[in-house]
């Protein structure tokens, strides 16, 4: 297969970037998208050109590192898949493919397709945990949890923190990411004692990082590789409203 690629190249955070055209041939339909980029980079390196920098690690859809905006969509055209789980058979021979980084003011570009998503870490640091020091725990089975709640918590906890929600959202909102963590801990009894502070602190940090606001467009849910649901955002809004009313 043959493809025309338009790839965002940007030397570093401060440099001006632009789309650069590449043509690549002899691509196997069973290659993953990242392997196709590997081949392209191999060609570039052999020609003495600078290879395209991109984030990737586990290549099995769980680490959340890969992050390309492919042909106008976060992680490309596949539903419920990360960039590394996208295969070239999803494209037609001769297609023109746009490859851009996840764009948001809160995700500054490091180089080419690599962005800095540490804003997510800073949000988690404000409350995405249960404050229990090592060794303080009681026996695990002393705390029964409704199976349905545990399942819902697990649905939310499946988030891999890739940032596709932010990338897909026209407003660059991070609500799906933040709400997934708030929901997980709100659904479990372990999260109870800190729930009000958690909701307020995490949401405030999210705003401080410069993410946009949710207008319930739903692009995040549609593009989330782990199918995190919008209902989490509603739950977060509820948590936040209640916390704002009762917190002193």
């Amino acid at each position: 297969m043959k493809f025309n690629l338009k790839v965002w190249r940007q030397k570093n955070a401060k440099a001006q970037g632009k789309l650069v055209d590449y043509t690549i041939d002899n691509i196997n339909a069973d290659m993953s998208f990242l392997e196709m980029v590997d081949v392209l980079n191999d060609n570039l390196t052999r020609k003495g050109e600078d290879p395209i920098a991109f984030d990737h690690d586990c290549r099995e859809g769980i680490c959340g590192m890969c992050s390309m905006y492919i042909s106008g969509r976060a992680h490309g055209p596949h539903h419920a898949a990360t960039t590394c789980q996208l295969y070239m058979r999803s494209f037609k021979d001769g297609d023109t493919i746009y490859v851009e980084p996840f764009r948001a003011g809160a995700f500054p570009i490091v180089k080419d397709l690599v962005t800095d998503r540490s804003a997510f870490d800073r949000i988690i640091a404000k409350g995405g945990f249960v404050s229990v020091n090592t060794g303080q725990a009681q026996d695990a089975n002393n705390l029964p949890v409704d199976k349905a709640d545990a399942e819902k918590a697990m649905d939310a906890a499946a988030c891999i923190g890739c940032g596709a929600c932010v990338a897909a959202c026209p407003n660059s909102a991070a609500m799906l990411f933040v709400s997934a963590k708030i929901s997980q801990l709100a659904l479990l009894p372990q999260g109870g004692p800190e729930r009000n502070n958690r909701a307020i602190n995490m949401v405030n940090q999210m705003d401080e990082e410069g993410f946009g606001n949710c207008t319930n467009i739903g692009a995040c849910e549609a593009e989330c590789p782990k199918e995190i649901k919008l209902t989490n955002i509603a739950r977060m809004n509820r948590e936040y409203l209640v916390a704002s009313l009762v917190n002193e």
């Binding site: 338009k6 965002w8 970037g17 789309l19 905006y69 042909s71 106008g72 969509r73 055209p77 746009y98 851009e100 764009r103 948001a104 003011g105 809160a106 897909a168 026209p170 407003n171 660059s172 909102a173 410069g210 993410f211 946009g212 606001n213 207008t215 467009i217 739903g218 692009a219 549609a222 593009e223």
Partner: peptide, 20 residues
């Protein structure tokens, strides 16, 4: 705020694929 949250826009976006 939402406009400012993405200073550099996408060159190509297929938003109809994920939202109305």
């Amino acid at each position: 705020q939402n406009r400012d949250a993405r200073p550099e826009k996408y060159a190509y976006s297929n938003a109809n694929a994920n939202s109305k």
